[in-house]
Amino acid sequence: MTGLETTVAILVSILGAGTPLVFAALGELIAERSGVLNLGVEGMMLVGAVCGFIAAAETGSPVAAVIVGVLAGAGMALIFGVLTLTLMANQVATGLALTIFGIGVSAYIGIDYTSVALPSISPVHIPGLSDLPLIGPLLFSLDPLIYLSFAALAGVSWFLYRSRAGLVLRGVGESPESAHAIGYPVIRIRYAAVLFGGAMAGLGGVYLSVAYTPMWVEGMTAGRGWIALALVVFATWRPARVLIGAYLFGGVTIVQFHLQGAGVEVAPQLLSMLPYLATIAVLVVISRDINTIRLNSPASLGKTYHPDAH
């Protein structure tokens, strides 16, 4: 195999490895932009993964899997929303509880489906284009869900920066008091953002259990929800940077495996630390002075909003 072909193989693998992170991180980004910090991404991904897998195993339809997984993720987010937005529980504690709950409940639901075999989704071959050298395999014959992740990025970017609703969402995240004063329903907007976050985390889970490694096993997300959370900070709450970060984080493992296979010595433990180190570095840089942090992170992130207190 030539160097060029290997490079393409690496890039295609990176697209696959990054995709669950893209979905989950884009969802979390929207939730955080509205001022809600949901640490339950790992739990929501797992529940999305198991429900999507069951749907795929029962109906044989990947579309049904996606729909069920998205709904399951949103369902988990709804629990989080009721606890933190209506009952005003602490977001950090509730998010952690949601992850622990998700790990347990997904294992329980999935008992009868452990290691059931599932036919894998065939990639979309765009006639003509997929036969092109290099860019053919790289851009025109991918898993349909990877294309969906590109669309999700475009949609989220457009929504945040080009639509009125996106402006309102950002406003709620910056200053829920002002948004409330102008007459926007802060809590309802935050609910919508949290539900979207859950739906996207669920989608990331479905991608793992139905497309990437078509199987269900307990805890199969193996910490990817936490990486998605770190990714949002790493991307300083910007959708395009989420995409870059996801491929960077996903790519670290792939490149490390390729190096190992080629006989180059690298410490795998060091490389698995890299995403978190990078995130800490970004945090340090943007937190250095009050202006950069204000420019980047949503001002009300993680703070419970009490509409009656104003």
């Binding site: 072909e5 290997t6 690496i10 693998s13 199969m220 193996a222 495996f257 190992q260």
Partner: peptide, 15 residues
Amino acid sequence: DPGREREAADALIAQ
């Protein structure tokens, strides 16, 4: 970790 196992297998196949 099914994801990483798959990635490692993919890398080996590519090589």
